[in-house]
Design a protein around this nucleic acid. Structure first.
Length: 808
RNA sequence: GCCGCGGUGGCGGAACUGGUAGACGCGCUGGACUUAAAAUCCAGUUGUAGAGAUACAGUGCGGGUUCGAUUCCCGCCCGCGGCACCA
């Protein structure tokens, strides 16, 4: 009988008691660092989707360890941030209390699944001993000018009552609560991630083991575009309008210039603008539009001309109209564009509506009519000395012209914005800065770190742009560390992504009080060899962490430029109704129940068997009974009540060795589903043999090989059966099996016989049969003769070991 | 609009660098065991025709290359994901 509950409990206890998974640096062995994206411990606990990635990393960790690697496989908690705080507010408990309780529950749920985590390295981002180093790293950035105070309008979530980074938005809504985000000017701390944009982009090419999809998302997010900035003089003033374009080659087609309504230049030109009242009204109108209304691609392009203002095209000295229009964004480029309606869709639409001149300057030499913008490259016409060049040459020559005449230069722009890093909320790391009237902003001395998050009566957000910390006067009021005068602490806290920017480094050295991580430990363990988590982090955590890591590299804290060598993304497990698992749909499956009904091993095997690892798949509890049956069959093979004789079977032995090869390769490739299928085929073979012959086709050593193959996937049952066949030490201290090259070569090969590419017969031939022999036999097959009869064989195709094809 | 990924039985999915399409699992159908049910075991399970051997069709659609295409090429359709008035 397969008593999974007893077996699983027994081994989970033994593994803990023997410290089986605790790991130390061992210079004699190669290291392997396999990491999960650590969870935020929510009050709802785990659903069956969460462990999918953890099962995969556990399989890899166990296999690598058996292969002789020193494996680091840690786990911890990302417990700061809005979700924890909102949960606490809703349930009227202190976030710390809620988090502690949730962690206990999460840990219990994880241990039910038998993961090989080294819990001695557990970390928690809300632990002052941990966030001391988050604050420390922030201070290093501040010292280097990478953290700065900004007063520009930012995303404000009226429900969460805090500022948010661009990365925290989904379709213009707060990623946490779904509320439409507003733009609100507000003092905030910002990290200069744009300084690292080029490196974050270029170094993606140094990551061949990252999935292309994730790299592509990051490329999109960083959004590099190469172009030029051009100064258009404003007639009768000393001022310029600087525009950014990627299509300098179209500049002779520029028939007007557009400023974003928020562009400061408009205010400066107030006196020159004859219709200022009208312009001001337009600016007001735009201000009242939400971002969503503004960026609706289908809406008509509105705008207003600036009467009395003309800009001068530096290439042909032509005077052009200047508009204010909200199809130009102030937050990208220079907040101004040169409009070339003939060669840009948006300018074209605007020009049609406002009846403006459309001048074609790029041709593809086919037709001349323009009923829409021609946006491809081509040959320049009507472009003065540049006429006749193709677009690419022209861009080069024209940017030389810009620089020579001091009217602009080449320029690279990025879509990624600096990271809005402060939150007006309670549950986060305090930003370790002090505001002094005399000295300005002063860093908290490193010896005073951590700045501990104080206890507070009300941790509800204030909504005023101040965090609840501002109300705790005895915490806020401090002496300036520089001049000793009365000063105030910064009261904003860090965002939820702060602590996760570097947590993977802390596992290397979790108790170090002298440094974020000791150099020798970093040298031994870094970088992370395998990182597994959800694709939703592609443009959030994964960009932020790469940014911090590069910074830590620059200041000499870590020795590698990239933190994660290979990255796999886990596909979601959907509910049985194919919707995302959520309380809202009532389709959540709890792993505790599944472990109770089917066992942890069956659950592990099922989640890996569902389909390709990176693909989303709908849950099906019936499928779980399939993997359970598989494990029952395995158990039956080893059932000691039947003392079956051993009668070796060559086919099954060969199958065993083929399975070793396949399972080894498939696990390395993350093809867990086909690895399991191969194991099922082997087990079916053994079971069938056992039933027919009342004997086992494999001896004890061979059965041991099979158990090792199964052990990363179903650790409890494998360990139990391993003990049953008389092994004293844990199976995870044994070595990964190797296949015998000689045994996996087939002696008999099945040839496919085709006539005109259609299957007509199958032929069993010895492996060493010659081409002649195979063809002769093939031709004599009954199923083949009738297709060849009375026809002339034009050609015979022979693929050794595979097939014969007669072409008639 | 741009970029990426995908489309294979009733379902999840397999198929190495072009070589037996549907492995493995679920479900379903029939049978054995049972007073009965569950569990278990055995057989079948892409469609059409046929009692059957077998034949033909078949991997989103239309073409092409090839002795041979789920796989390669060209042109479409649909779904998912990312980015997006980004100049």
């Amino acid at each position: 009988m397969y008593d999974y509950l007893k077996i699983e409990k027994k081994w989970q206890q033994q593994w803990v008691e023997s410290n089986l998974y605790q790991v130390k640096e061992d210079k004699a062995k190669p290291k392997y660092y396999v990491l999960d994206m650590f969870p935020y411990p929510s009050g709802d606990g785990l659903h069956v989707g969460h462990p999918k990635g953890y099962i995969a990393t556990d399989i890899i960790a166990r296999k690598r360890s058996m292969e002789g690697f020193q494996v680091l496989h840690p786990m911890g908690w990302d417990a700061f941030g809005l979700p924890a705080e909102n949960y606490a507010l809703k349930n009227k408990v202190h976030p710390r209390v809620a988090v502690e309780k949730n962690i206990i529950n999460f840990k219990r749920q994880l241990s039910l699944l038998g993961f090989s985590y080294d819990w001695s390295r557990e970390i928690n981002t809300t632990d002052p001993a941990y966030y001391r180093w988050t604050q420390w790293a922030f201070l290093q950035m501040w010292h280097k000018g990478l953290a700065y105070e900004s007063f520009a309008p930012i995303n404000w979530c009226p429900s969460c009552q805090t500022g948010l980074a661009n990365e925290d938005l989904d379709d213009g809504c707060c990623e946490r609560c779904g509320t439409l985000v507003e733009q609100k000017p507000m003092r905030q701390w910002v990290l200069k991630i744009t300084d690292y944009a080029d490196r974050l982009l270029n170094d993606l090419d140094k990551l061949p083991d990252w999935e292309e999809a994730i790299k592509e998302m990051q490329r999109n997010w960083i959004g590099r575009s190469e172009g030029a900035e051009i100064k258009f003089k404003i007639k009768n003033t000393t001022a310029n309008i600087t525009v950014f374009t990627t299509r300098l080659d179209t500049i002779f087609g520029c028939t007007y210039v557009v400023l974003a309504p928020e562009n400061e230049l408009l205010q400066n030109l107030k006196d020159k603008i004859k219709n200022w009242a009208e312009v001001e009204k337009y600016i007001e109108e735009v201000k009242n539009k939400t971002d969503l209304q503004r960026t609706d691609l289908n809406k008509e392009k509105t705008g207003v001309v600036l009467e009395g203002v003309k800009a001068i095209n530096p290439f042909n000295q032509e005077e052009v109209l200047v508009y204010a229009a909200d199809y130009v964004l102030n937050s990208y480029g220079t907040g101004a564009v040169m409009a070339v309606p003939a060669h840009d869709d948006r300018d074209f639409a605007f020009a049609i509506k406002h009846n403006l001149l459309i001048r074609r300057v790029i041709t593809d030499e086919t037709e001349d009519d323009l009923d829409e913008a021609f946006t491809n490259d081509g040959k320049l016409i009507k472009s003065g000395e540049f006429s006749g060049l193709n677009s690419a040459e022209a861009r080069q020559k024209m940017s030389d012209y810009l620089e020579k005449n001091d009217v602009g230069q080449k320029k690279i722009n990025y879509k990624i914005k600096d990271w809005v890093y402060s939150r007006q909320r309670y549950w986060g790391e305090p930003i370790p800065l002090i505001h002094c009237k005399k000295c300005g902003v002063v860093a908290v001395p490193e010896s005073d770190l951590p700045v501990v998050l104080p206890e507070v009566k009300s941790y509800e957000p204030t909504g005023t742009g101040e965090s609840p910390l501002a109300a705790i006067t005895d915490w806020v009021n401090v002496d300036c560390p520089q001049c000793g005068a009365k000063a105030k602490r910064e009261t904003n806290t860090m965002p939820q992504w702060g602590g996760s920017c570097w947590y993977y480094l802390r596992y290397l050295d979790p108790k170090n009080e002298q440094a974020l991580v000791a150099k020798d430990k970093d040298k031994y363990w870094s970088p992370v060899d395998l990182y597994v988590g959800g694709a939703e982090h592609a443009t959030r955590h994964l960009i932020y962490a790469r940014f911090w890591h590069k910074f830590l590299f620059d200041i000499g804290v870590v020795s590698h430029e990239e933190p994660f060598t290979s990255l796999k993304h886990v596909g979601l497990i959907m509910g049985e109704d194919e919707r995302k698992m959520s309380k809202r749909w009532g389709n959540v499956i709890n792993p505790d129940d599944m472990v109770e009904r089917f066992g942890a091993d069956a659950l592990r095997v099922y989640e890996m068997f569902m389909g390709p690892f990176d693909q989303a798949a709908a849950w099906n509890t019936n499928g779980l009974s399939g993997t359970r049956k598989f494990l029952e069959k395995v158990n039956l093979i080893f059932d000691s009540r039947e003392d079956l004789p051993f009668k070796e079977d060559k086919t099954i032995v060969a199958l065993l060795h083929k399975t070793i090869k396949k399972v080894s390769e498939d696990i390395d490739d993350f093809h867990f589903n086909t690895a399991i299928s191969a194991l099922m085929i082997l087990v079916n073979g053994i079971s069938e043999y056992r039933q027919i012959n009342k004997a086992l086709p494999l001896n004890k050593e061979q059965l041991a090989l099979f158990l090792k193959l199964l052990s990363p996937l179903a650790p409890h049952l494998s360990e139990e059966l391993w003990e049953k066949i008389g092994q004293a030490e844990s199976i995870f201290l044994s070595s990964w099996p190797k296949y015998d090259e000689k045994l996996i070569k087939d002696e008999i090969i099945t040839y496919i016989v085709q006539v005109n590419g259609r299957l007509r017969a199958q032929l069993e031939m010895p492996a060493d049969a010659t081409e002649r022999e195979v063809i002769d036999r093939a031709q004599a097959e009954v199923g083949v003769i009738k297709w060849l009869e009375g026809k002339e064989i034009k050609k015979i195709i022979f693929v050794p070991g595979k097939l014969v094809n007669f072409v008639v």
